[in-house]
């Protein structure tokens, strides 16, 4: 495990904790896309089925379990405990536009045509687009709370660090996985516009609002 990989995992975990803390402290999930969070829960569920079939390391097992828990608790807070604060109106991205192409692609382009491998591929493709409902919601309302932008920043940082991890692994182990790398590049591109706004506005103490 290299430094980019571990920092990437830490960023990912931090993003999820920031989101949970934001919802818990404010007792509100205003500005958060429930659809994106449901997609992330589906991503982890379909990817981590190997928890039952393979053992890699204590770290791997614990992190997978923690990620799953965070995702499910977040979905519960949005659609359960704090559903009255959920902005259903602005969370209007059509999920079928993501789910249908992603499902089709995972059947067409995978490493082996086995259920676990197709589900893994599906989760990789889905993760690369899962944030779109959230970004769509922000562009629709034209603003985001600062803590929500911190969440998005760490989520984007995780993707960028994983790219560095793959470059490192390619250089040192001559290992690469085309499906993960292409999806990783795609999802990191989605964050570029946001990164720009984050650096030019949020880090200078301003609220993120779109013209």
């Amino acid at each position: 495990m290299n430094i980019f990989r571990i920092l990437g995992d830490v960023s990912h975990l931090l993003a999820m904790i920031i989101l949970l803390v934001k919802i818990w402290r404010s007792k509100s999930c205003a500005g958060i896309s429930g659809k994106s969070q449901v997609l992330f829960a589906i991503v982890f569920t379909s990817r981590y089925l190997d928890l039952f079939t393979n053992f890699f390391s204590i770290y791997n097992t614990v992190m997978k379990f923690v990620f799953l828990m965070c995702a499910y608790i977040t979905v519960y807070l949005i659609y359960g405990k704090f559903r009255k604060t959920f902005d259903n109106e602005n969370d209007s991205f059509r999920l079928e536009f993501l789910l249908i192409p992603v499902t089709g692609l995972s059947f067409l382009e995978n490493q082996s045509f086995t259920p676990l491998e197709i589900l893994w591929t599906f989760s990789i493709y889905l993760e690369s687009v899962a944030i779109l409902p959230q970004l769509f919601m922000i562009s629709k309302t034209g603003e985001a709370e600062t803590i929500t932008t911190h969440y998005l920043f760490f989520l984007g940082l995780y993707h960028a660090l994983y790219l560095a991890n793959w470059i490192w692994r390619y250089q040192t182990e001559n290992y690469y996985d085309q499906i993960a790398v292409v999806s990783g590049v795609v999802q990191t591109i989605f964050y570029c516009d946001f990164f720009y706004l984050y650096v030019t506005k949020v880090l200078k103490g301003k609220k993120l609002s779109l013209p």
Binding site: D9, F56, Q111, D177, A180
Partner: peptide, 10 residues
């Protein structure tokens, strides 16, 4: 094994 290798990632 490439499949095992990638699945070590999260």
């Amino acid at each position: 094994n490439i499949i095992l290798k990638k699945k070590d990632e999260l």
